[in-house]
């Protein structure tokens, strides 16, 4: 019989490595060719269009790339991104914990906060905070409905920096609270029960058991939020806060090198977001460790796959 014959003829030890002709993928070659042609034509359009007053002006890009006003804008963008994210994360954690509270007033307040700040455009919120003194000319600090200790004019406190931070931070807090809430919910109920059975208080359980585990779920989207935040700081140019885009605008308002300065700003935004992307990649890898996530194919493996799956 065939099977018994096969068994008899099987050589001892490890069988020979399989050498088969790989499947060809003409479709992949075609797609790659189309992409390359399109890309080449875009590059050509950008590079050749450099004559004076004909559009892209690379000389001016080089001239303003390291202009001190632009560099100041870059620094301002970085620190307002950092501060607004800090406010957003703190507010987000507080709002998320409030949202999960058994007290309906407390969780309702959190719901209302999230509903309002996610439901209105960020640009409107920025303008709102900037123009706050129109609604409340003076701001007092004191006992609610009671005596006030400090009185001051709103426009002396609400500078463009404060208005910008309030707008970006409060808006971010609403989004962060949803991220934090998802993280908290993702922690298994059994963890809380085990901690409860040991006699730990609700606050201890949240701080020592739940939040540290929720971090794995919270951190990757927080990286995305930081990248969005970095770009959204450019909206503060409408209230004349001196961040990167505003710095570029101040220059082109005088010399009309609009495209060149927008390219300068874009180069800096790309540089900053690229740094964040790299950081996010490492943070995600660290927090996703040991949890099922298919390893992504490396670039080298994808090149090999294009060529027909040869290894």
């Amino acid at each position: 019989m065939a099977t018994s014959k096969l068994t008899e003829e099987r050589p001892t030890g490890r069988p020979e490595e399989i050498k088969a002709v790989p499947v060809r993928h003409p479709g992949r070659w075609l797609a790659a060719a189309i992409v390359l042609v399109v890309a080449a034509s875009i590059v050509r359009a950008i590079v050749t269009n450099t004559g004076p007053n004909k559009g892209f002006e690379w000389v001016w890009v080089g001239h303003y790339l390291f202009d001190s006003r632009i560099l100041h804008g870059v620094v301002a963008t970085i620190y307002i991104t950092f501060l607004a994210m800090l406010i957003g994360i703190i507010l987000g954690v507080v709002a998320a914990i409030m949202r999960l509270s058994p007290n309906p007033i407390v969780s309702g307040a959190s719901w209302l906060y999230i509903w309002f700040f996610r439901g209105t455009p960020l640009l409107v919120q920025i303008l709102f905070w900037y123009n706050l003194q129109a609604l409340f000319p003076t701001i007092s600090l004191g006992i609610p409905f009671g005596p006030a200790f400090v009185h001051t004019h709103a426009n002396s406190i609400i500078t463009t920096l404060v208005a910008g931070l309030l707008a970006l931070g409060l808006n971010e807090g609403a989004y962060m609270s949803e991220i934090v809430r998802a993280g908290i919910i993702s922690v298994d109920e059994g963890q809380t029960q085990a901690a409860q059975s040991l006699g730990m208080s609700r606050l201890q359980i949240m701080r020592l058991i739940v939040l540290p585990q929720a971090m794995r779920v919270i951190i990757p989207p927080t990286g995305n939020e930081t990248i969005s935040m970095l770009k959204n700081t450019s909206l503060l140019s409408v209230i004349s806060f001196g961040e990167l885009l505003f710095a570029a605008q101040t220059i082109y308002d005088v010399n009309y090198k609009i495209i060149a300065l927008l390219i300068v700003a874009s180069i800096w935004y790309l540089a900053m977001t690229s740094v964040l992307y790299v950081g996010q990649y490492f943070i995600e890898r660290r927090y996703g460790r040991g949890f099922s996530r298919a390893e992504r194919a490396t670039m080298r493996e994808r090149w090999l796959a294009l060529g027909g799956g040869r290894r």
Binding site: D188, G190, Q191, Q193, A194, A195, I209, Q213
Partner: peptide, 8 residues
């Protein structure tokens, strides 16, 4: 507990 519930 059945599922141990150790703090991972």
């Amino acid at each position: 507990f059945q599922q141990f519930n150790l703090f991972p």
